[in-house]
């Protein structure tokens, strides 16, 4: 009997096809992705059947922190109800997020200083530049310079600590419009003022009535569609906590706003 010849096979696996596939996948993910914006605290929004998408541009998000779920704190509600604000501008560069944030900051600081003549807030150019790069912030005006002079990691750590009484935009005082505005109301007023100013400027620039009606700017988003302000809160947050924000917005006559939810089908039990 003749010997069976075992053919020696090369153990090399050809990776070209594999690399083709991975590159394709990579391209897909790169093109479809929108990066998760860094938020100081994670909230799980309740779900609704509403199919309206959160607008990508021209949005003011008000985040309300949830109670402690880790069981680290004796009183879980210690962490609850801290307010954070984030501004997103237009997709194009004329009114980019950076520019919108600067305009909001200038307007808000001016409003604040008018009200607090004795201890005004002063921000230098570097601090303002940092603010324009910050997605979400949540401190009182008085603490703003300190927050903006921190390094990015320090800032994230500072804002991520919900137990810190300095974190969160003050919202509780001054329920009535005629009195002094609280910090949250000042921000809301600044948003309103800036939105109105932009609308006027852009309206003046628009030559034809059609152009004017096609304006998709912050003002139209904010004032007419009522999508400009979105409230994001945890599903287990008590209504009383969320109501504080509602109440402040109602006081500022910004009474048409949207609530962020996740999607679910009509047949699902809502309970």
């Amino acid at each position: 009997m003749g010997k069976v010849k075992i053919k020696r096979k090369s153990t090399l696996i050809d990776m070209t096809a594999m690399s083709d596939v991975t590159v394709l996948l990579l391209t897909f993910f790169m093109l479809t992705s929108t990066f998760l914006q860094k938020e100081p605290t994670i909230v799980y929004t309740p779900s609704s059947v509403s199919e309206e998408k959160v607008p990508m541009n021209n949005l003011v998000t008000v985040l309300i922190s949830s109670a402690d779920k880790s069981g680290k704190y004796e009183d879980p509600s210690l962490l609850e109800g801290k307010i954070f604000i984030s501004f997103t501008g237009d997709a194009d560069s004329t009114l980019s997020s950076e520019k919108i944030r600067l305009m909001m900051l200038d307007e808000a600081v001016e409003l604040y200083n008018e009200q607090h003549k004795n201890n005004p807030v002063k921000l230098n150019g570097a601090e303002k530049a940092v603010f324009s790069q910050t997605n979400m912030f949540g401190v009182a005006f008085a603490d703003l310079p300190a927050l903006l002079s921190m390094s990015p990691t320090e800032r994230d750590k500072f804002q991520g600590d919900m137990a810190n009484p300095k974190v969160g935009i003050p919202i509780n005082d001054n329920k009535d419009y005629n009195g002094n505005l609280n910090d949250f109301q000042i921000w809301m007023k600044a948003i309103y003022n800036v939105a109105q100013r932009i609308n006027k400027e852009q309206g003046d620039m628009a030559a034809t009535p059609e152009e004017r009606s096609n304006l998709q700017n912050l003002y139209t988003a904010l004032m007419r569609k009522g999508q400009g302000i979105a409230i994001k809160a945890d599903k287990d947050t008590p209504f009383t906590t969320v109501q504080r924000v509602f109440d402040n917005l109602q006081t500022m006559k910004l009474n048409k706003f949207s609530l962020m939810t996740a999607l679910k089908s009509e047949d699902e039990p809502t309970q």
């Binding site: 996948l25 479809t32 609704s48 309206e52």
Partner: peptide
């Protein structure tokens, strides 16, 4: 490439949140 894919997969939001619009009266 696999590492990059993993990075992008973890950093992206594929599903956008929905909004529910409400109108409340003003406090006047």
């Amino acid at each position: 490439n696999m590492l990059l894919i993993t990075f992008f997969m973890l950093c992206t939001t594929m599903i956008k949140s929905q909004t529910l619009q409400i109108v409340l009266p003003t406090n006047e």
